[in-house]
Design a protein around this nucleic acid. Sequence first.
DNA 1: CATATGTCCTGAGAGC
DNA 2: TGCTCTCAGGACATAT
Length: 278
Amino acid sequence: MRRGVLPVVGSLITQAQRPECRLRPILLEPSIRTFDRRVRGQEITDIGRRGKRVMIHLGNQDVIVIEPRMTGLVLLADPPGPEHLRLRLTLTGGQNEQLLFWDRRGLGTVRLLSADEVQVKVDDKLGPDALLVTHTELKEKLKTSRREIKVALLDQSVVAGIGNLYAAEILFLSGIDPRTNCDCLTGPQWKRIQTATHAVLQEAIEHEGSTLSDGTYRNALNGEGGYQNYHRVYDRVDQLCIRCKKGRIRRIVQAQRSTFFCPKCQQRRGLHHTIRTI
DNA sequence: CATATGTCCTGAGAGC
DNA sequence: TGCTCTCAGGACATAT
């Protein structure tokens, strides 16, 4: 998303408005009147990212923080449909006329924050970025946690940027059962999680994300992503595991969210050991 | 404090 | 066809 909207760097915002929408409005902070007044005339100086949030930096040091959640899209092109348009920034001085936030479910949020507020309301709440996190950081943060590793990887205060789909893919590459408690993981396993995290996310970014069967996710030009064609476990219930070619992908629920994994090559260690000990 | 659960929304697809 | 049910790349308030 960040890469997709990078072309608006250097443009000026001439107006911010909430398009007509019969649906419940998304969370917008501050209210549109104040928001519009504060962004009018500001130059977009940079597009950044904190975890899964897109950060639009303005000339006066304010930042528009967009949190797309499940179905939010940041678009330069026309949206997938006329409904669900939540915010329009009219632009001038560049190649793009507008930057849109479109969100079918409406769970996403847009906030305009000062630099100080970004620190307190965004940065302080997030762990190290998933693309930069070290295995030592992961281990130190979680080695005494009793939570299941899949659930812990989704906690943005532990590590920022891993979503449900990617947590499943990461643990498959790591060869670790998603139900394993964090306090049972070994040093080499933490290392594998780190390596897999970088590999999966890097790969997904290169393919511009995953457009799932519901077709919701789009890049900034309303085009589909390509990473769905490379999913190893996500949404592949009952399919033969591509690695061991023996196990069939299982779907379980952890913390109210789907997890996909291969029961054959993602096994919890220690079973034999336990039996021997007994 | 750490961890678990319910909730905010709309829409698509499965099953009857 | 039309209905109900379940589920969806998430995060947070509240309960335990």
